[in-house]
């Protein structure tokens, strides 16, 4: 079976500075994987390289077997921060944009997600609280049906109830074969839904382990993660 994501010997430089060095990572289908790392370790850069937004990298990046940029973008969904839209834009117009741009956008699925998340399409983007905006982004992202979902810090700055709602919608709407890579700088809130943990440190991948394998040794995912960073403190 083709892996959802396969990265081989990938290096990424920006303004002559190394951002990511010799990254190797393979994710199987149907997994929920956390990408953990301190701020500045390279989480967002890695997401952007996979998503095809950061282009000047060397090495191989394949999503569901597709390496070519345009092909790759069709088989992944990245949770965008909606920065391209004006604050006065109505949510209904943002939806129309998504429907027009992504052939795999499933409106029926969006309606279900919208109802589940209690989103009002008559509202304007600028009116939304952080929690509601995060829910909108998740609804838009999961209305696409792709093998790989990239969620860059989907829970940052939102309240517990919104977080629960988002986690539940992931569990409900994730296709069986779809893999989710989500980044965060702490893990407690999502630990119990994870299949695997990838820790990034100093511009490369330090380790990639099944979450229950960590627990089988009597450790918690968060102490394990902290231990990888401890020597610096």
């Amino acid at each position: 079976m083709t892996a959802s994501l396969s990265i081989k010997h990938m290096n990424y430089h920006k303004n002559r500075q190394a951002i990511l060095t010799d990254v190797n990572l393979t994710l199987a289908t149907g997994k929920i994987v956390a990408l953990l790392g301190a701020n500045g370790a390279g989480k967002t850069s890695l997401m952007r390289v996979i998503a095809g937004l950061a282009k000047n990298y060397r090495g191989e990046v394949a999503v569901a077997g597709k390496t070519e940029l345009a092909q790759r973008k069709k088989v992944l969904a990245f949770n965008e921060n909606l920065q391209g839209f004006s604050k006065s834009e109505k949510l209904a117009n943002i939806l129309s944009f998504y429907v027009a741009v992504y052939p795999d956008f499933d409106e029926e699925r969006f309606n279900q997600l919208q109802e589940f998340m209690d989103l009002d399409l008559n509202q304007r983007l600028g009116q939304l609280s952080r929690g509601i905006k995060a829910k909108l982004v998740i609804a838009l992202t999961f209305s696409r049906q792709v093998p790989l979902y990239l969620l860059d810090e989907p829970f940052s700055g939102i309240d517990v109830m919104s977080r629960k709602k988002i986690i539940n919608s992931i569990l409900l709407w994730k296709g069986e074969e779809a893999t989710i890579l989500l980044s965060d700088h702490f893990v407690d809130e999502i630990a119990q839904v994870l299949d695997e943990v990838v820790i990034i440190k100093e511009r490369t991948i330090l380790c990639h382990v099944p979450a229950d394998q960590i627990r089988e040794r009597g450790e918690t995912v968060s102490t394990y993660y902290e231990a990888q960073y401890e020597e610096d403190m």
């Binding site: 929920i32 539940n168 569990l171 409900l172 839904v193």
Partner: peptide, 14 residues
């Protein structure tokens, strides 16, 4: 499986 996953807030694979 999916109902249990959502009720317990855990992964379907688990």
């Amino acid at each position: 499986v999916r109902r249990l996953a959502v009720d317990l807030t855990v992964n379907v694979n688990t």
